[in-house]
Write a protein that binds this DNA or RNA. Structure first.
Length: 227
DNA sequence: TATTGATCATAT
DNA sequence: ATATGATCAATA
């Protein structure tokens, strides 16, 4: 377990140092072994990178690198470097969403500064052989910020009005609200349309894959002048 | 095949 | 129980 990085620069250097290396190599360096499949180890890649980069242990609710205010996200990419999956951001807490402002929301806080680490995720490649890509330390630009806020405010309004159960993965331009539960029988209290509280399937906020695809493309494919 | 809905493991 | 880390599996 590495000590926490002291600066953003140190964090980025650590991430650059493992670009091109395989998950199996990184695991071995940490005295661990890669699973044969992620089916029963879905969070393994993220947790491996947390250990390797020295993320502050456990879940304090805050960013992974508390002292730096930086959140770490691995991004499963295909052979072209395009994200294969949406990115889970946070549990949707109905109570916390009611009457909240985007500027002071937990989601906005998490997205202020993110270290994206692309990782190969071809299902035909065993986890140990998957390679780590070049990291990107990112903050939303004004356009991204506007899109995120618009979706979030729309969701917050619906939830506060008691319409959480009308929200599906179809809603949102850049964000999504999707199930985030042990199973579909799970329930959690949320405002209902009658002004009370009723049990509802727990949900989480996700970033659409096309959003992360666009930000990777902008930073890695386009010339600096375009940014 | 892309997207949405369901699920798995671990730590607190 | 709930938050962390996500990917799997079914659907459109």
């Amino acid at each position: 377990m590495a000590p926490p990085p002291r600066t953003e620069g140190e964090l980025v250097e650590r991430a650059k140092a493992i670009a091109g290396r395989s998950l199996g190599e990184i695991a071995a360096g940490l005295g661990s072994t890669a699973p044969d499949s992620l089916a029963r180890a879905k969070g393994w890649v993220g947790q491996l990178l947390e250990r390797q980069l020295g993320a502050s242990a456990g879940n304090t609710g805050g960013p992974d690198f508390a002292a730096l205010g930086v959140e770490l996200k691995t991004l499963p990419v295909d052979v072209r470097g395009v994200p294969r999956e949406s990115t889970f951001l946070a549990v949707l807490s109905p109570a916390e969403l009611c009457g909240a402002r985007w500027e002071s929301s937990r989601l906005a806080a998490k997205l202020r500064r993110v270290l994206w680490v692309p990782v190969e995720a071809d299902p035909a490649t065993p986890p140990a052989a998957r390679r780590i890509g070049n990291p990107l330390l990112w903050s939303p630009d004004p356009g991204e910020e506007r899109a995120l806020r618009a979706d979030w405010e729309h969701f917050a309004e619906l939830v506060a009005a008691g319409y959480l159960d009308t929200l599906t993965g179809h809603a949102g331009q850049v964000l999504q609200v999707r199930p985030k539960a042990p199973n579909k029988a799970a329930r959690r209290l949320a405002p209902d349309a009658e002004g009370g509280q009723s049990p509802a399937l727990p949900r989480g906020f996700y970033l659409r894959a096309r959003f992360t695809a666009a930000l990777l493309a902008r930073h890695f494919l386009l010339p600096r002048a375009a940014r």
